[in-house]
Design a protein around this nucleic acid. Sequence first.
DNA 1: GACCTGCTGCGGATTG
Length: 770
Amino acid sequence: MRDAHLQLDYQIQRWIFNQGWNGLREVQAKAIAPILSGKTDVLISAATAAGKTEAFFLPACSALVKSDNGQNIGLYEKEGQGNGVGILYISPLKALINDQYRRLESLAELLDMQVTPWHGDSPRSKKNKQKKSPSGIILITPESLESLLIRDSGWVKQAFSSLKYIVIDEFHAFLGSERGQHLLSLLTRLEHVTERLNSPIPRVALSATLGDLKSVPQSLRPNQSLPCVIIEDDEAKASIKVQVKGYIEPSQLALESDSKKNNFESSDSQYIGIQHPYTAEAQVCSDLYRLCRGGSHLIFANSRKRTEMIATELSDLCEHNIVPNEFFPHHGSLSKELRESLETRLQKEALPTTAVCTMTLELGIDIGKVDTVVQVTAPHSVASLRQRLGRSGRRGGSAVLRMLIIEKEIDKDTSLTDKLRLELIQSFAMIRLLIIDKWFEPADTELYHFSTLLHQVLATIGQWGGIRADQLYILLCKQGPFQQIQPAHFKSLLSQMGELQLLTQLGNNQLVLGIVGERIVGHYTFYAVFKTPEEYRIVTGNRTLGTLPIETMLLPEQYIIFGGKRWQVKNIDMDKKVVDVISVKGGGKPPTFGGGSMSIHDRVRQEMYEILNNGDYRIRVGEQHLDFADKTARQLFSESIDTFNRYDLSNQPVVDKDGNSYIFMWRGDKIVNTLTALLIRDDFTVEAYAGVICISKIDSFQVCQFLQKLASQILPTATELAETVPFKMTEKFDEYLPDDLLNIGYGAQAFDIIGLKKWLEDFKKTDLGL
DNA sequence: GACCTGCTGCGGATTG
């Protein structure tokens, strides 16, 4: 293995030597032979910054150089043509393509190889050069590849006819999503147009470490026409340090009496900011200021709204204390300029910098390592917690994670779910699953993706002009990734598309685009398969601050927080989708951002039950119990345990309170959704929050009777249950789907009938006292 | 009581 690099082209060995590297990393050495062979797919799974991209590009470029030596180069140059593109690199982010382009420059120059960044913002000149003379490496997004296939498939056929490798960066970011399904379909269509279905182009997937590696090759190439070699990074993991800090939000009553007495800065508060009533949020910001100032940190705040509030508060604290600001927000609605200036500042490491961010800084973009990662409010999944934690741990030091959790002070009005401190318990559960079990949520690769299938039908017809239904089915569902789609589903889809004039069938059985289909495919927003809310541009003077998805009504004179500062709305142009704002000092109420529902995994909820049932969240290390909670978090935990025991939740899943019944399933949202939908179907008044189902004005005896009855019945299928749900359109092209497919797709995504069945069987046993 | 990603062709203004 130590001499693995000797298999590489001499010039590439020289390049490695010139980098001053101390030999190749483990994954880099292990990847050389399978990639050079060019006969298999390869999955390279390694932690961030383990040199995955070089692990691919060094052997791949080596293979490219060798096959080019002395062959036809003179002839092609004379004709003004290249000898075809050798490597197609696909990335989920434009920013990653730009990073990668910079990193490849020196190697490409040495090998005299053309490298072309190809996305919506990359220069037309570079694309034109590549168009004239296709060769070397293209770095592209799935959407740009779609546009090439539809608008210029003749060129694609010619330019990619001798393609040697397709490499997909950040493969885990695609896995299981609509966009991932789109990508796989694009790759099949590419093999089809270049007549390579029988001699497949090797696919190389680069990914952060994944849960179940064995299942990934199936996802990388659903038709299994090439084997796959898995290369894993075994390098020792750094240690992790975790702390959970609890905060108590004073009840409304306490706040009111506080403000009457006018003692805003109460005695135990270390709050050092602008005078306003004590809130847990203010205490959180005060602690963040103290913990983060002077270092380099990431604060994940879960929503853009909270991200803005915290970033603004921290900047205000800097101003108040007359020190330079070092806290900046980073999220998807901020302009590219604001985001990039922060990314550059983090990268340079010259000034202490803390980014308050959403998942925009979770993956991809190179910002180096930071001192610590802070999570404010519980993360939505163990997988994202893990990815965020991976950003911490400079110079081989331990990764440091702080979790700040706010729970409400208990008074007479406190709800049962609030008393259980479920957000805190969820945080504990996620930390334990990550550290003890080394578990995180797998991607759901069982979904149908009908919306994306409809998109691909339109795109493929757009690409070929006309195609027969049976050819379309074979291409997309047999050779391509839509392997779960039955011919009957496909027929139903096509006839609905015909009725809506998305397509038309000609006399010779060719399907062509209909009037509506032409309009959809012709519009530039067609290429992406994912849905985006309407965005308004936020403008002050001549400067665009960024964009904001507007779901609730925004009014003139209203105050908003944006880009870490306060603004007042002056004018709203509905046609141009522009909001004019002016900078203001002083308070304001931000608008609400979007809706949506979380999906907590089964295993997280079961771990929460285990913690409460055992009365212990600590991590056992040998004889010791490691307590990662601070004093307030411990107090909140003991309140939770009190409530858990008072209602006998260990044995009793249904309890009465204030005339309502609560069902504690301790299961994931799919199973909770399933029972909720069944209760609604049978006319109960139901609300589900944090995995707890509340049924209004009914006693637990009646609920138990209903559950008993349900346990002995044959449950409806997920599709049948979906028929009872009024609003099911979640994806971009759902509005064109026939009802039967919409129900199948929604049912598979939202419900888990088997999971509910198992829970009901357990319930039956406990309820009968068995 | 959630987040993120991406996209064309062309007309007009500006610059070398």
